[in-house]
């Protein structure tokens, strides 16, 4: 009887944790998109008003970001300072592929980011500002989509995990 109870609790906790993990995937994405937008606004300020060279601007932004997004900017900045890439786009693309692995950003977000990499540092500050404006608009659209996804899925996956665990428990007992 006791073993049955312990097993049941294990099943329910495991599937509940799985559900919460799935739900967090949807919850994390809009937050990270928003943080990314704020960081890019910092980068814009560095470029337009501070006239900081791009590698140092990126390093400055990285120092203000938290964990995974910080790695992203840090990697680009280091790659550019060390001169291990021919262009900003190369460094940017590689960083998108490697250092955004452990974020919740989806494939479409990464494509959008990659499309921005080729523009960064390729023209004068006026033109850059326009591109930044456009990119904010696109990011906001992506945020809206992610938010809608979250509203639809986050709660559902959380309760689904627990309920499924309870069903398995009841059927097996």
């Amino acid at each position: 009887m006791l073993i049955k109870l312990i097993g049941g609790i294990l099943i329910i906790v495991a599937s509940g944790a799985f559900g919460i993990g799935m739900g967090n995937k949807y919850g994390g994405r809009p937050k990270e998109l928003k943080r990314l937008r704020i960081l890019l606004q910092m980068l814009e300020t560095e470029i337009i008003y501070g006239a900081t060279p791009l590698p140092f601007a990126l390093a400055n932004v990285a120092s203000k970001a938290d964990n995974s997004l910080s790695h992203f900017f840090q990697d680009i900045a280091e790659g550019l300072i060390r001169g291990s890439f021919y262009s900003v786009k190369e460094a940017w693309d590689k960083a998108v592929d490697t250092s955004l692995q452990d974020t919740y950003l989806g494939a479409s977000d990464k494509e959008l980011l990659k499309s921005f990499g080729g523009i960064l540092g390729a023209s004068d500050s006026n033109d850059q500002q326009k591109h930044f404006k456009l990119f904010y608009k696109q990011l906001e659209q992506q945020e809206d989509l992610a938010e809608e996804d979250r509203r639809k899925n986050e709660k559902m996956y959380r309760s689904l995990g627990f309920l499924f665990g309870i069903v398995v428990f009841i059927v097996l007992v």
Partner: peptide, 22 residues
């Protein structure tokens, strides 16, 4: 009791899924 429990859980599942538009 088993059937009652399953019934309740199924009802809740149904509610949750309908609320999230599936």
């Amino acid at each position: 009791f088993k059937i009652a429990g399953l019934g309740i859980i199924t009802a809740i599942l149904n509610l949750v899924l309908i609320k999230s538009g599936r």
